[in-house]
Design a protein around this nucleic acid. Structure first.
Length: 586
RNA sequence: CGCAGGGUAGAGCAGUUGGCAGCUCGUCGGGCUCAUAACCCGGAGGUCGAAGGUUCGAGUCCUUCCCCUGCUACCA
């Protein structure tokens, strides 16, 4: 059995603040990586910002800074947000590094050597004013179909018609407003059809071995069925990786060609032994967590790059592709600034683990999901607190209060443990297949079972009438609480505090179902506070509309809002909350 | 006939190879009092988008239709 697991989450594009929907991939991979570590796999979790490309270069131009400066600033923002959410990366890097250039150019040269790179001359719109070629979407003009004056060169946003930039009437540069001219330019293409035989063979085997989700297989097949085209992998830009080929020295690689290579280079920046991970398919299983829009790039384009190079790369094993998370009535939108953003989540004063709980409990796996404040409050109060928090609290409080914090001696209920172990086996299986939502929900089912067991046993009565029965019950429940702490900690790192209360030392998957190791316990505290109607109402109003509208609103209001009796800072440093930092519990 | 996903209780959803239609919230009634107004038990509430077909039997398979939501590849 392979004992090394390489985990990646989609590299977020650098030039925006991530919202809850973007956070989903990073969080999912974190949960999986934490599980793997706890269950004895040698694990490496790699992520980072994707920095090159048109979007960054244009944005930098607008803000009158260099692309590098822009990326530095946003990279920091990303890193801070993920840190706040307790994401335990082995390395959170970036694509604008020397290693990235080295590895990307190396792969390109291998592809060229193998004959999978072709050259073509095309005509593109060029802005003489800015001395640059324009990406399709940066050309604006009047739609020839519906007459909309702000149509984009790739598609008219008004009537939906797909366009070529040259179709537009009165085209102009979306960047400087000048009238662009057609100009010839040479580009390099990767010969996907040429690599296709290798790719199809690999997909056939990998999709079964790696139990790809149905939607992933389907989307991949439809891409191939509709015919793979050669894909242009170079651009007329300056912010990117130089193309190491005469005649193309003033061009760079297309961001989608180099972005997935970021997984590799970020690993290489972390350890010199990176080839033990990336050129070691015999020992390493690669798990990738991405959004559904990214599937073909991870099953078709990137694997083709690796296969075409003829080298022995570690290929994708299992891919977990989630659907979209929508917000209230519409979509999360980075460009429009609609939704709850990483920075917003921080400012609410709600602990990171509560956010983690909700996002993962509602992880959209089969169809798109919706974040609503009402549902957020409901799920947190009923499941996280009413079910799980309550079981932990009532059990440990009972032991503390009536048994003086000493775990009562005695036997155990074998029928109960048989059921517990059966469920724990199922949960582990879900974890192993990266079925995070199923695993998580089953953990709550286990807690629910604990609550029923507690209720049926009525220890508050039997404590005096049948002391042995009560002792047995509380002992069983305390060990169940420990198991829940282990099972939950990948999702909710704060659950590690349960281990501290039980004074058990560091726990791992092997401790599940064991009935030894706890002697006496500390006085437990409340894990999470309920979300009150008033504060939810406040957040709902505060985070409505776009970021611009919010800013305008906030200028009118005070900089500090009173929510219940919690002070929440609208700007500046967030209030630190009762979370447990990694490593504090040992 | 562009592609994909979806229409199941008031709301949000699950239903694997066809075998008594379920879960969470809400609602109504009861119980418990260890626990964060938490916990437990029970009730009410659905002709499973429409029509037709296969079958002893269809939410599930087939056909047609209606209605939503995305995507449609030089934008991450």
């Amino acid at each position: 059995m392979k004992k090394k697991r390489l985990v990646t989450s989609a590299l977020p594009y650098v030039n925006n603040i991530p919202h809850l929907g973007n956070l989903l991939q990073v969080l999912s991979a974190d949960v999986f990586a934490r599980y793997c570590r706890l269950n004895g796999y040698e694990t490496l979790y790699i992520c980072g910002t994707d920095e090159y490309g048109t979007a960054t270069e244009t944005r930098a131009l607008e803000e009158r800074v260099t692309p590098k400066e822009l990326c530095d600033r946003y990279h920091r923002i990303h890193a801070d947000i993920y840190d706040w959410f307790n994401i335990q990366f082995d390395n959170f890097g970036r694509t604008s590094t020397e290693k990235q250039t080295e590895i990307t150019q190396g792969l390109f040269l291998k592809l060229e050597e193998a004959g999978y790179i072709n050259e073509k001359t095309i005509e593109q719109l060029y802005s003489e004013k800015s001395s640059m070629f324009l990406a399709d979407r940066y050309v604006r003009g009047t739609c020839p179909v519906c007459g909309y004056e702000e149509a984009r060169g790739d598609q008219c946003e008004n009537c939906g018609k797909l366009l070529d930039p040259t179709d537009l009437i009165d085209p102009r540069s979306g960047i400087d407003g000048s009238v662009p001219v057609l100009k010839k330019t040479k580009h390099l293409y990767i010969d996907l059809p040429g690599i296709l035989p290798k790719l199809e063979q690999w997909i056939g085997e990998a999709s079964v071995r790696g139990f790809w989700a149905r939607n992933a297989v389907q989307m991949t097949r439809s891409w191939i069925r509709d015919g793979l085209k050669e894909r242009c992998i170079t651009r007329d830009l300056s912010w990117g990786i130089p193309v190491p080929k005469d005649g193309f020295r003033n061009k760079v690689f297309y961001v989608w060609f180099d972005a997935p290579i970021g997984y590799i280079s970020i690993t290489a920046n972390y350890t010199d032994e990176w080839e033990d991970w990336w050129k070691n398919p015999e020992e390493v299983e690669l798990f990738q967590f991405i959004g559904k829009d990214n599937i073909p790039f991870h099953t078709v384009v990137f694997p083709s790059t690796l296969l075409g190079s003829g080298e022995n790369w570690t290929m994708l094993h299992h891919m977990s592709s989630s659907e979209y998370l929508n917000y209230e009535s519409g979509k999360f939108s980075k460009s429009k600034g609609i939704g709850v953003f990483g920075s917003d989540a921080k400012e609410t004063g709600i602990p990171a683990d509560v956010w983690r709980f909700y996002i993962l409990y509602n992880r959209p796996e089969k169809s798109d999901g919706i974040f609503t404040w009402k549902d957020f409050q409901e799920k947190v109060n009923s499941e996280l607190i009413g079910n799980l928090g309550n079981l932990v609290n009532r059990t440990l409080s009972f032991v503390h209060r009536f048994y003086d914090g000493k775990i009562p001696e005695g036997g155990s209920d074998s029928a109960f443990w048989e059921k517990v172990k059966e469920m724990e086996g199922e949960i582990t299986k879900h974890f192993d297949r990266a079925e995070l939502r199923d695993a998580f929900r089953k953990i709550f089912a286990l807690a629910d079972m604990g609550n029923k067991f507690f209720q049926a046993g009525e220890p508050w009565k039997t404590r005096t009438s049948e002391p042995e029965a009560a002792a047995r019950l509380l002992r069983d429940l305390t060990y169940l609480v420990r198991d829940l702490g282990i099972l939950l900690s990948p999702f909710i790192p704060a659950a590690e505090v349960i281990g501290k209360w039980l004074r058990t030392g560091k726990l791992s998957w092997e401790d599940l179902g064991s009935l030894t190791g706890i002697a006496d316990i500390e006085k437990p505290e409340i894990l999470f506070k309920r979300l009150e109607d008033k504060e939810i109402k406040t957040f709902k109003e505060r985070f409505a509309g776009s970021q611009k509208e919010r800013e305008a609103k906030e200028q009118v209001e005070n900089h500090i809002l009173k929510v219940g009796n919690t002070e929440i800072h609208v700007s500046g440093e967030p209030v630190r909350t009762n979370k447990v930092r990694d490593g504090e519990v040992s």
